[in-house]
């Protein structure tokens, strides 16, 4: 992960105690977090957690019932926010019967760009998406990945300081996904703050500087992956040893209050959690061997965002 300057006094975006209800449904129950300049923030949550509502509030598409949003320290005003925020919806929100160039030009104009600025941004967007040679082809004829790139480009024609992305890689192949994240990295490097919602936890883990998890309208975790792991599932590694024959009895080690037991009678796998792999794993292997079992395979699993997410939001289906 890249280092981010958290010491910056005024975040690009600050959300404080945001609440929003639809009738009896409380979509947001006091959401508070910030987004620093140039930061890539993964905004996660199960279906119905309130992610889309929050994104719509930030994009100025709906207003919160309560709470405040600050952009670079200034209170959120819808008209100004539209210049500072870029919004890329989950759907391919393009005109399929227009060409790439015409789509980019249209959304550039909608964002208030004119003449030379529009021309320059159009040229940049075609380069950025790698679609210069397809500039005059109809978007409707493109593959899903290409459409996603144009979809993304239309949201940043006006060089927003903050980019809101609602699942930008749904339905695209790994190559296109890689390309899209390279494009986002490029934006981030120029100081654009990115707030990305996704259900691809590997993307969030690998491609973000910070993670915020929302559940039932509330922020349940906020921090880097390491911080979240430490706060939730802990840093212990899960070790799995596959042995050459079923255990005749659990393997015991230590004495008195330090005694530990590994495995269960009849099983061919022993699993346990250890704090330090380099210190504890050789001892564990040695113990198993001393009990007369051969080691067929060893697996060490570090705690991942997947574990953190399920730990924080539970295993129950949400829809």
């Amino acid at each position: 992960m890249r280092s981010v300057n958290y010491a910056r006094p005024t975040p690009a975006l600050a959300i404080h105690d945001l609440r929003k209800s639809y009738g009896d449904l409380h979509a947001l129950k006091g959401v508070t977090f910030g987004l620093n300049r140039g930061e890539r923030l993964a905004f996660l949550g199960p279906n119905g957690a309130g992610k889309t509502t929050l994104i719509r509030c930030l994009a100025g598409l709906t207003s919160a019932d309560h709470g405040e949003i600050f952009l670079a320290g200034q209170p959120f005003k819808s008209s100004e926010a539209r210049q500072q925020i870029g919004f890329v919806p989950q759907e391919i929100a393009l005109y399929a019967d227009l060409t790439t160039r015409q789509n980019l030009e249209a959304f550039g104009r909608f964002h208030g760009l004119r003449r030379r600025v529009l021309r320059d941004r159009l040229a940049w967007a075609l380069r950025w998406t790698g679609l210069e040679d397809r500039a005059d082809d109809l978007v409707g004829a493109f593959s899903g990945g290409m459409q996603r790139r144009v979809n993304l480009a239309c949201g940043v024609m006006h060089e927003p300081r903050i980019l809101l992305l609602d699942e930008p890689t749904v339905g695209v192949d790994p190559q296109s996904r890689q390309r899209i994240f390279m494009m986002l990295d490029e934006l981030s490097a120029t100081g654009t703050s990115i707030l990305l919602t996704t259900h691809h936890l590997d993307e969030a883990e690998e491609r973000s500087d910070r993670i915020v998890i929302l559940d039932q309208g509330m922020v349940v975790a906020d921090g880097s992956l390491d911080e979240l792991v430490e706060q939730s599932v802990g840093t212990q590694r899960l070790v799995r040893l596959r042995i050459d024959r079923p255990l005749s009895a659990p393997i015991r080690a230590g004495v008195a209050e330090h005694a530990a037991s590994f495995g269960a009678t009849g099983e061919e796998e022993i699993s346990t959690r250890i704090d330090d792999v380099s210190d504890h794993l050789p001892g564990l292997i040695d113990l198993v061997r001393r009990r007369g079992y051969g080691i067929a395979d060893v697996q060490v699993e570090a705690p991942s965002l997947h574990h953190v997410f399920l730990h924080l939001t539970g295993y129950e289906l949400r829809d």
Binding site: A59, G60, F87, V88, P89, E91, Y95, H111, G112
Partner: peptide
């Protein structure tokens, strides 16, 4: 339906 309206309304328009 395809969220283009949302996108349009998030612009200056």
């Amino acid at each position: 339906e395809n969220q283009t309206l949302d996108r349009l309304l998030s612009t200056q328009m």
